[in-house]
């Protein structure tokens, strides 16, 4: 459960980012190859009244399908799903997605913890999760749950992050997580699901 070497084939990726998310995600998601076989689920903190601007932006930059997650849709490989603003995004045991308007967690809706914890339940050791830049501590409990379920935990190198509070909290909660730069995360994720 530690380091970046999955015990079993990866089934899904989860990513959480807050302040500085745009640049961080631009360094990772466009790098994923067109043949990337896994689904990628992303929570970015955005103000509740605003539409998620990440989706149209990344659609123009990525080789994969980028979309806002819809309630009860099955996750499909090679697709990047973003949580809609003002909704939590959760993964059901059958691998479908659901949304909720439950109260904010860590003052956030969507919350990274909510996605990571439910995804850890659904995918167990088949899950790879990364906590990127951010100025709060959302995602720390989620990354810990992911690691405890046998998944691969990754944290953006706090020293290089735009905002280091979120990576630092994640590392504190989950000290076994692999610390990587954005470039290293991009190449590690790109290698997943290819012939090994």
């Amino acid at each position: 459960m530690s380091g970046a070497s999955p015990q079993s084939p990866a089934q899904a990726i989860v990513i959480g980012a807050s302040a500085g998310a745009v640049q961080a995600l631009l360094a990772i998601l466009p790098a994923l190859p067109a043949s990337f076989p896994l689904p990628v689920l992303v929570v970015v903190h955005v103000p509740p009244d605003r539409d998620n601007v990440m989706v149209p932006l990344l659609q123009t930059k990525c080789r994969l399908i980028v979309k806002e997650a819809e309630d009860k849709e099955p996750v499909v490989g090679g697709t990047i799903y973003f949580a809609p603003s003002d909704y939590h995004l959760l993964v059901e045991a059958d691998g479908s997605l659901s949304l909720s308007t439950d109260e904010p967690v860590n003052y956030s809706r969507p919350s990274i913890d909510v996605l990571f914890e439910s995804a850890a339940d659904a995918f167990g050791e088949g899950l790879v999760g990364a906590i990127l830049t951010g100025a709060n501590h959302d995602g720390a409990a989620g990354l810990k749950a992911l690691a405890e379920a046998g998944g691969v935990a990754i944290v953006e190198d706090p020293a290089a992050a735009h905002s280091q509070a979120m990576p630092l909290s994640a590392l504190e909660a989950c000290p076994t997580a692999a610390v990587m730069t954005l470039d290293a995360i991009a190449s590690y994720l790109s290698s997943l699901g290819t012939a090994r």
């Binding site: 009860k72 939590h88 959760l90 993964v91 059901e92 909720s100 439950d102 909510v114 439910s118 339940d121």
Partner: peptide
């Protein structure tokens, strides 16, 4: 009910 949310609650 969608189980993931029920479980959290």
């Amino acid at each position: 009910y969608a189980r993931a949310s029920i479980k959290r609650r």
